[in-house]
Design a binder for these strands. Structure first.
Lengths: 115, 115
DNA sequence: CTGTAAGTTGCAGAATTTTTCAACTGGTCG
DNA sequence: CGACCAGTTGAAAAATTCTGCAACTTACAG
């Protein structure tokens, strides 16, 4: 019944879903607890409709939930330890930065080609 | 000097770099140690040029390194605990699947709109 | 030198994703 | 009811990413 997707593909889709600045910020903000769209909007600087689109991506993936409360909509993390994921990512990012990875990797790429 | 990028954007780029099935499989294979392209190619089923393109993405990001050994090129993780990241991702993925997130989220989306 | 295997690169076309604008739904208030 | 505010949706245009083919480089064998 379920569209039987190989695990590595599910992972790729999951990471791709995370691969957007606005979506990252939303997830980080929601780590401090549920938050109405209004507040996300105030914190993120992006057009309402654009934020809505990104929220829809997060909702479809199932990583957040939305509940209507009167005229406002409140978003929350659906569960899962998102904080742990972000920490793991930041650790790698830090190591890569320290190890001259990011910038230098690109320089290496364009200068004296070792490959 | 460095193209001063906000952290949330660096994170988004990082996750986007991970958002491709072939790249995920490469990273998973490299967790067992360095591996020549030939072996990656045998394990992944993708055209050589396509694999090369994906390897180039990983290289540019700095998450892997490439070393030429004779006529073969050997790839390796550049450091960072990639395994921890994958574990964190899998945990969330599992929780989302268990909590009827993925599939049901989409159903919810198309049926009786709570939003 | 010639041929060949291993990878990479440049590109063009195809496919996806982002962004934006306009229109729309649900509540709330007077 | 009529006017708004909060968000969402649909759709088209713009920007990115993917894929596959052809050409190229490097190393090695004969």
């Amino acid at each position: 019944m379920t569209g039987r997707v190989p695990l590595y593909q599910a992972k790729a889709e999951f990471f791709r879903m995370l691969g957007h600045p606005v979506r990252i910020r939303v997830l980080e903000l929601l780590q401090d607890g549920p938050m109405p769209v209004r507040d996300l909007l105030a914190a993120i600087e992006v057009e309402p409709s654009n934020l809505s689109q990104q929220l829809a991506v997060l909702r479809r993936s199932g990583i957040v939930t939305a509940v209507r409360d009167g005229s406002t909509v409140v978003y929350a993390l659906a569960g899962g330890d998102v904080a742990a994921l972000m920490r793991a990512a930041r650790r790698i990012l830090t190591e890569m930065a320290a190890g001259q990875a990011g910038l230098l990797a690109e320089l290496r790429e364009t200068e004296a080609h070792p490959l």
